[in-house]
Amino acid sequence: MSDTMPPSQDMTVLGRIEKWQRRCEFMLVYAAVTATAIMMLLTSADAVCRYFLNSPILIAYELTEKYLMTAAIFLGLPSAFRGGAFIRVTFLVDRLSPLPRSIADHLAYIVAILCCLVFAAATVQQAYRSLFEPTKLSALPIPVGPAYLLPPLGFLILALAILTGSPRRDRPAAS
């Protein structure tokens, strides 16, 4: 699997950064997996308790929407990239000679990184504002603000992932 850590031989500064980055991504994937599993269990438990015990789990709905979905998706962004799930249209690029093709590839990466950074910068502002908001989930007094930290976190790590590694071009999609 591409999202497990490869043995790192390069112990220069860059190598170390990459090692930490990989470790970070590794943790994010597991957080995303956990969120998905909880989403599945909590919502199912809600349906079962509602039908058989006449007592739904009120918090399930909002917790799923505001925290679990966002964690599953935003924290999963780097692994989507590592897994080669970034769908590209390459039929034109594939026909180019090596130099223009390399220019196009680099351009694609620069645009992708810039785009992620704009996302990260914009969403971090929203997160900052939301942290000071008194809004809480209506079924339990859990603040909604911290959930807004998930998008900038995901986009930042995604930008780093694109910066340090290229996805394998031969894999067109997650399978």
Binding site: N54, P56, L58, A60, Y61, E62, S138
Partner: peptide, 27 residues
């Protein structure tokens, strides 16, 4: 009493609980 009533969170949920119904959140 005991009916599952779809309401939104907050005061409507509290009221349904107080009335003895089962407040339920459905999108």
């Amino acid at each position: 009493k005991g009916l599952k009533i779809r309401v939104t969170g907050g005061p409507p949920t509290e009221q349904m609980k107080a009335l003895g119904a089962v407040p339920t959140l459905v999108p």
